[in-house]
Nucleic acid binder design. Structure first.
Lengths: 123, 123
DNA sequence: ACAATATTTCTAGAATACTGGAAATATGGA
DNA sequence: TCCATATTTCCAGTATTCTAGAAATATTGT
């Protein structure tokens, strides 16, 4: 997953209402839940719910499918796994998961950090 | 990790600049990088950088330590792992990771979703 | 004590996001 | 066709977040 996609997904989840919506959709499985059910459970004005569902869809986190008068929303597990994978890579890189690469070595010889280390007599 | 904590962390990362900052800090290891180095690399006005660093700190994603005139910021791997754990639980619950629980069964007998399923002759 | 460096806090303007009423759209049933 | 239901789009007001100049703070070297 690219950084831009990850950021979209992060933005999607970075709101109380949207996180709550997503958390309701996750256990609901691939069939999902109709918009109205989400509104009932979260006590949201229809327009507000619709706004957040659009955001989640834009973020690629949920899919939409009409069935009769209702529109069912479902969590996109692939997108979520992609986000987790992205974060895992950006969390473990060179630290917890891999054998701890020497971080300082990767920075420009004259970087501020290196100058600082030198001035302190560190390697 | 609680939902509130997770949301704070998500909000912390849900911004281009802050995600970029965090991505620079991750490979830098526990020693971290001085603020100025981050500013140099990301071409940020000092005040803007400081604002985002404060946000990241408030989100519990980075720690701060003064060393001489510089202030070093470091990624908090524990917080990041906590976030990943939270997302993993909220992604896999009853679906991908566990043996796929019957989602519909968990909803109120008279929920909109159930009414809808009944009206379609589904179980 | 003073000057230079690194960074933060203060502040206000600009940009973006959120909320919800009202109107519009889509569907199914009488 | 007409009505009820489910949901979205439109829109405007409100709130929050972002940006960056200027001033303030902290530290080090002279």
């Amino acid at each position: 997953m690219e950084t831009k996609t990850a950021r979209l997904a992060l933005t999607g989840l970075a709101h109380d209402t949207r996180l709550a919506i997503f958390r309701l959709l996750v256990p609901a499985g691939p069939e999902g839940l109709p918009a109205g059910e989400l509104g009932d459970q979260l006590h949201l004005a229809a327009a507000t719910l619709s706004f957040h569902l659009k955001e989640l869809r834009h973020a690629g986190l949920v899919s939409q499918q009409r069935a009769g008068r209702s529109i069912f929303y479902a969590a996109d597990y692939t997108a979520m796994n992609g986000l987790i994978a992205y974060l895992t890579e950006n969390c473990c890189q060179g630290v917890a998961c891999t054998p701890a690469a020497p971080a300082a070595a990767r920075y420009a010889k004259n970087s501020r950090a290196v100058r600082h280390r030198k001035s302190r007599g560190q390697t």
